[in-house]
Design a protein around this nucleic acid. Structure first.
Lengths: 392, 392
DNA sequence: AAAAATACCGGAAACGTTACCGGAAACGGT
DNA sequence: ACCGTTTCCGGTAACGTTTCCGGTATTTTT
């Protein structure tokens, strides 16, 4: 018969059902339940990273002493400290950041949410972020929303659950609701917006001066003698899209040029849309003689399409873009663009986060504006015909 | 006089030195030390995220019960469970992943170390990684080594300290010593190498078929009638560099073409070096009529330099590159390259990691080879003079 | 109705770390 | 030698979670 685990007598032991797959017993004498532990699989030893207690055990000291020694605390004898440091090195001790973070409620990690890491603008921005925060001892966790609102929300929640110390975000194209980045949802952790921001949320922001950039590049086209300037704008829902359109319109107005609705086309940045818009323009009685493509690779799509149609750039049609510095300099003809300085944007966003960490609740959210620089290349220099590059 | 904290009498209390900046007392009656707690700053309440105990307290149940309810455990009444779930939702409870990870010693996070996120190849590879691991519920922590060995090592150590569940790494150009990714240093967590691998380490690997890609692209040049093919190779220390050189050499040999040492130049991928190499070649009595640039943007540097020098591509000088698909299709003339499928490489690396997690110690490290596809464009089509694009 | 089985919950321990604070020994001055 | 002071170390609790397991109440069986 079964013996009681407590009194080791078998007399008063009786079966008492099954629990979690094992036979259960009850000892009347001890008034005590227990289960048949024989059938248990051997408690396989999990792989073990050396802990502070391991170090402590070797030297016969307390874990707290080891902690003090390793963290350069003062309440410790220098001999003890050295001995502990030696043993720690010998055992290749590495502190468990999870435990440290749990204790200190500080992960030294920030989360970054961007639409797509494959876009050079964001890759460069992340580089800027990483450079700044790495110096301050932070790591970076990167999520891509792939321009999906749902993915963005789940990314943010996952980062919050991971207890990141801060959140740097550039919203997806779809995002219209910003509850997920409001202080309540984010448990008051610092949030910094960059590039695509929301005015609904009272957070630090880094934006680029879309209006001025668009204005400058449009004025440049006018200076080059362009008479009929079309704009290939982005989705109307995007703030950056609206701002760039406004800058373009203001430049036209300031130069007493008419705003022609047929010259303003909104697309979702798809190459096919850009080509379709171009063909529609070319079919007009008065086709434009210059195009301002406000984003991404659409300017390149236009260049390729124009070449295929036998039109000369810039003489028949000038083309200017916005951003994408690296590619713009590579392509032939060189594309006139506005250098948006994504690296600086990333750096600035990171700095705002760090400042917010330092100042705590004294921090006043503010918006940084990074102004782009007009970089003039061949694609807009009407009537020159020569390669020309002007770096500002 | 001071009153004892224990017996509240002041008679037997005497000063007993200073400790940590505060007056210390000793009560003879109680044989008890204590300090003057009056001067302590108010224990400021830290901001609080709702925990399992908060939920438990509301309902008057034990934390363990809440845990069971939320994790869909069986030992719980369905009414209790529902009540707990309701309260949890109401309090906006989100589990603390740190605590969970500490308990389960599983972070559901993988670390990725790459040389530079701004290079499209790596950005795309990361995208592939992220797609696969996200589906499996893992998050990604990204570090850039910026081609520095020291930074790479510290990145790896930081990721290990963060207790990532796996490590996907592409080594820096400098890295010659691989101790930091050996099982011992990595505490036995799964390590997957991709692109730039090390044969020293017995890990799963994803490599691209450099040899074949280089062979194919060189044979293509020969088919196009190139007689004197130069190669702009990378650092000799890089394995990929050596493999591509070998593929190139084999193609020449197979076609009874001489290997000319003056046609083989190793550079560190810097643009200036590429231009210098070009000028050196052009100054030769017999300059090459085709160049194979094995990496990064050097092919573009060559195209620009050739254009400036008034040489026609491909008729005077054919140029082929390796990788950088996106840019290659944008530039004029289109650059013939080998599409390396970075997205697939990332995906495959991620899958190898997941498999290793499933199989545990039964996993047999193996090497996946991703073969590149030759994409022929204008820059290598000698004597055609027309725009030609062949997508495979 | 007694015995056996089941359902469900609470308590405790553990993950690895650090802060706090008291104890004891060593030290210093009279 | 005594007493006040300093040095240094250990114990404990806590961070938030989950797992284990015993206890109790309820249900089922005999």
């Amino acid at each position: 018969m079964m013996k009681c685990t407590k009194c080791t007598s078998a007399d008063a032991v009786m079966r008492a059902g099954f629990i979690r797959g094992r036979q259960r017993f009850f000892c009347k004498a001890c008034d005590y339940h227990f289960t048949d532990n024989k059938a248990l699989p051997a408690p396989e030893r999990k792989r073990h990273q050396t802990t502070i207690s391991d170090v402590a055990k070797v030297l016969g000291v307390a874990p707290s002493t080891v902690s003090r020694a390793l963290n350069g605390h003062s309440d410790i004898n220098s001999n003890t400290r050295q001995a502990i440091i030696d043993v720690a090195r010998q055992l290749d001790y590495q502190p468990n950041l999870l435990a440290q973070s749990l204790k200190s409620s500080e992960t030294k990690t920030i989360g970054v949410v961007i639409p797509d890491i494959e876009r050079p603008f964001f890759a460069t921005a992340i580089s800027g972020i990483q450079q700044v925060v790495t110096e301050a001892g932070y790591r970076v966790m990167i999520c891509q929303s792939k321009e999906s609102y749902d993915v963005e929300v789940s990314n943010v929640q996952a980062l919050i659950a991971s207890r990141v110390d801060g959140l740097l975000i550039c919203h997806s194209r779809e995002t219209q609701n910003f509850d997920h980045v409001k202080p309540l949802a984010c448990r008051g952790i610092p949030v910094v917006h960059f590039d695509r921001v929301s005015n609904e949320v009272d957070s630090a922001k880094v934006i680029l001066d879309d209006w001025n950039g668009a204005f400058n590049v449009t004025e440049h086209l006018i200076e080059q003698g362009a008479q009929r300037i079309a704009i290939l704008a982005g989705p109307e829902s995007l703030l950056i899209s609206r701002n760039r359109l406004a800058g373009y319109q203001h430049a036209l107005k300031r130069n007493q040029m008419p705003l022609r609705p047929e010259y303003e086309v909104h697309i979702e940045f798809q190459p096919e849309e850009a080509v379709a818009a171009l063909d529609a323009w070319l079919a007009l009685p008065e086709p434009p003689d210059a195009i301002f493509a406000i984003n991404y690779t659409n300017a390149f799509d236009l260049l390729v399409a124009l070449k295929k149609r036998g039109l000369r750039v810039p003489d028949d049609m000038a083309v200017v873009g916005f951003g994408d510095e690296f590619m713009a300099s590579m392509i032939e003809p060189g594309l006139t663009t506005v250098d948006l300085h994504p690296y600086r944007i990333g750096q600035q966003a990171a700095r705002l986060f760090l400042e917010q960490m330092r100042m705590k609740e004294n921090f006043q959210p503010r918006t940084f504006v990074i102004s782009g620089d007009l970089v003039i290349r061949q694609s807009s220099l009407k009537g020159k015909g020569n390669y020309f590059k002007l770096e500002i």
